[in-house]
Design a protein around this nucleic acid. Sequence first.
DNA 1: GACGACAGGGTTTTT
DNA 2: CCCTGTCGTC
Length: 627
Amino acid sequence: MRCLKDLNPKQLEAVQFFDRNSMVFAGPGTGKTRVITSRIAYMLESGKLPEARRILAITFTNKASNEMKSRVAAFGVDQKRVRIGTFHNFCMWVLKAYGDKINLSREFTFISSNQQLHLLKQVAKDANLMMKPNDLKNRISDLKNSSVDFEDYLNKTRSGTQEFQVAAADYQNRLYAHKLIDYDDAILHTATIFKLKPSILELYHNAFPYILVDEMQDTNRMQLELIRLLGGNAKHVMAVADDDQSIYGWRGALPTVIQEYIDLLAADKIILNQNYRSPQRVLDVANRLIQFNDGRTEKELVGRPNELGDDVIGRWFDTWKEEAEWVADKIVELHSAGMEYRQMIILYRSRHPSLKVIDEKLLEKGIPFQHFGKNFQNKKQLLSEFIVASMKLIADPNNEVVLSALIYAFAQRFELNDDFDLYEYYKKDSDRLTLDRLAQIHVEDEIDDAVQRTAEFCLSAKDLKSFAKLYDGLYKALNIEEDLAKYDETTRHEEKRHLDLMRDRMSKSVASTITDMLAEIELQDDSNHIDQRMNKVGVSTFHTAKGLEYKAVFIIALEDHFVPGRNGGRPDKEQEERRGLYVAITRAESKLFITHANQRTDWNGRIEAVRPSRFIDDMRKREVTES
DNA sequence: GACGACAGGGTTTTT
DNA sequence: CCCTGTCGTC
């Protein structure tokens, strides 16, 4: 069969395993996406999938979901017979269909993180809770992520103070009253429906007899419960995971979830350790490092035969400046030898002031580079947020939470003092603030003007049929162009790209209502998408580089309190830190460079003596050439 | 309650 | 450095 061609024995086993639920342990570069797509193709070609049934493939990130979609398409698979999506995308779909069973409005949309913070601020204030909005948000999210359904979550909130319980309940009530859900609710509500209404779950069992889960190590307890429910008794769930690449423990994705999956679903283990990405010398370093972790599933990575590769180079410097200088020189050297800038990446554990020197040296040597992740401005997405919030108001003009979030966004945009309550200011002595009222305010300044014009547009836009026209209208009414002009070049470019992408998605959406379209759009945020067309050296954290691969990888600042990070000294955290470094190492397709310095500047710019990372000893063997 | 002086502490990020 | 939070003073 065509779809089984070129698979190694272990991959073949994974593709054709149907006796029980399974957990495929896929080390880095072992072709896990290949296995998933081949399995999908195999189920269709072999007729294993009954007519009129579909395969459900769930990923955690949009990036992984898009990747899987295009790989499956490249295989020539009939797209109609497989549903590929993120956890949230799948749950949204279920909730749009059956949310009414738990009294969730069909009209729900997702609360944005700005809106959420704003709401939590109010909620905390009303409950007399002395907690920062962000802490409250994380606390609620942690509790949800470790819960198996909504009742379980409510029970867990009882561990908090009286004030916390009040705030948490109030938060949930206000979301409910304003047809909003947060990201965690999407999963929790779905699991709750499946538990309360077994007949609905049954429909999904029928529709999707086979289930695939990607990157299970990034999954938390709440998501595991959803998978367990969807799997039912069919024993046809296959999850793919790498416990050694589990680096998101702080948001509930602990390696223990993998073991829980195996226990709960009585899953068989299949191990993929044939690596197709890195030379053996790189793999040796990775293997040696990771074996110091406890409780892992052993999967010593084996490279392609006869591809020992170059020595892994370890270089230790006196100062952070020499380190950066050396890295930059090496990049120049590789580039003159024909390696493209885009094939190289510099990796570090966390942002730290002393890493500025990397930028300086790269600039000095005329090397184009690109930072990955959100290290630019936090203003990002503020502009698109206006558009989304305004559209929600067009669809639901009486939604006060959305309205207050929009006003709050205006306050942010015009950099008003945090103490000044713009919402109260507009509300004045009336009971509640409405769009009508805002449309009639007496215009005294720039802010009034912007708010008034937006309100006016929202009220008049009901008849606009096309999403793109709505977008264009808001773009004008909100004066987006003017705001863009205020930004510096990089931010403007980023914002514009984000806005254009949003417009594009809106115009392509086949949703029948604004709210449905928005729910879709809000799940497709790829503002941190890396533009590979730009031929630039990457500069990234270990985390952001996960899943990517580069010809040359530079791992810098390998010092204690850096790798492992400041809190990583604790034994439990140390293992996750080690996995982070393992992820970094296994990005290398050809050359790997590891560096540290003896001196680095601290937050005050003062020179500080630093110690080499304890992990260097773990990796050290003849493969690391020292000097 | 408003303001300035001081101390303390700063990860990783998706949906 | 830069953003918090706290404490003292007016």
